[in-house]
């Protein structure tokens, strides 16, 4: 039998963690409880349920940006008017996580800390320049998500630390935003390749600014800053689009797994960019 401890505030959380340094933190439980199902049952580490701490909840303005509680569910994010307005890309991705009940349970903090290469919220969070707020007895610190997530299943979260909030700075002005998830099925599917894109066109219909991020094609979210830079001022002709897709195809590092082969992921990564850029042509 595994004890489940449910602190109601951060102070209580840290006391419990002191007493049980090997405790397993649980937000929505959709990843943790699956892992526990498969582990050797002899393990008696307690679970630290994070759902009842006020600090982890709420979606509110912070400065010009947004502060989302790490224990906010994807349903909560989808329903929130502030999130819809200021982080539409995140709302788009949130709609495609799992299925309706999973969205009621799974949390954004959990998705980040699980750090799966296929995490649906991650490409948008990278594009939105998200940061995580990490609290410990030693104080608070903030870290850009690209520095927080180190590799598949690995984050830089240290002993005695807890992610309490996800911070999104003011959204840059990108009238065109898109998220596409490719899975083996139309819902309840781990993504095989995912893509988030933001773009702004100038008065001539060329690219003024564009940013892209891919999931499931590398150990962490893949970005192509050089490509993004090179596309500034570029016209959206077939040659530009084809060339951009080629750069992406050569630059991603997908693996073969039970869901798809690396070569397929490589091709699709490029094609999702093609769809986005062609879509900009209107």
């Amino acid at each position: 039998m595994r004890t489940v401890l449910t602190p109601s505030c951060l102070e209580e959380f840290f006391s419990l963690l002191d007493a049980h340094p090997d405790a397993l933190p649980m937000a929505g439980g959709t990843d943790l409880l699956l892992k526990l199902r498969n582990t050797a049952a002899a393990d008696a580490r307690p679970v630290l349920a994070l759902g009842r701490m006020a600090e982890m909840h709420g979606i509110r303005a912070e400065g010009e940006g947004l502060s989302i509680g790490a224990a906010e569910t994807f349903s909560g994010i989808i329903a929130d008017p502030l999130a819809r307005q200021q982080a539409p890309l995140l709302s788009l991705a949130a709609r495609q996580v799992g299925g309706p009940a999973i969205r009621n349970m799974a949390t954004i903090g959990g998705n980040i800390c699980t750090a799966s290469p296929a995490g649906d919220s991650l490409p948008p969070l990278y594009l939105l320049d998200a940061a995580v707020e990490i609290v410990s007895r030693r104080g608070r610190r903030r870290l850009p998500i690209s520095q927080f997530i180190l590799g598949p299943g690995r984050t830089s979260l240290g002993e005695g630390e807890l992610v309490t909030r996800v911070l999104l700075p003011r959204d840059g002005c990108f009238p065109c935003q898109s998220f596409e998830k490719v899975g083996r099925r139309r819902s309840m599917a781990i993504s095989v390749t995912s893509f988030a894109g933001q773009a702004r066109l100038d008065d001539h219909g060329s690219i003024a600014a564009a940013r892209f991020a891919w999931g499931s094609v590398a150990p962490t979210v893949a970005r192509f800053p050089a490509l993004e830079h090179a596309l500034v001022g570029a016209r959206l002709d077939d040659e530009t689009i084809r060339h951009a897709a080629e750069i992406v195809r050569s630059g991603v590092s997908p693996i073969d797994d039970i869901r798809a082969g690396a070569q397929y992921r490589r091709i699709v990564a490029g094609n999702l960019l093609v769809r986005f850029l062609e879509g900009l042509r209107g």
Binding site: R185, R186, S187, I258
Partner: peptide, 23 residues
């Protein structure tokens, strides 16, 4: 049903997929 040396690799409903309502 994906197998490797007789052992089923698609061993749960996350890896053995059947159509859902959107499919």
């Amino acid at each position: 049903v994906a197998t490797h040396e007789g052992a089923v690799r698609s061993g749960d409903l996350a890896t053995y997929l059947i159509p859902g309502a959107l499919d």
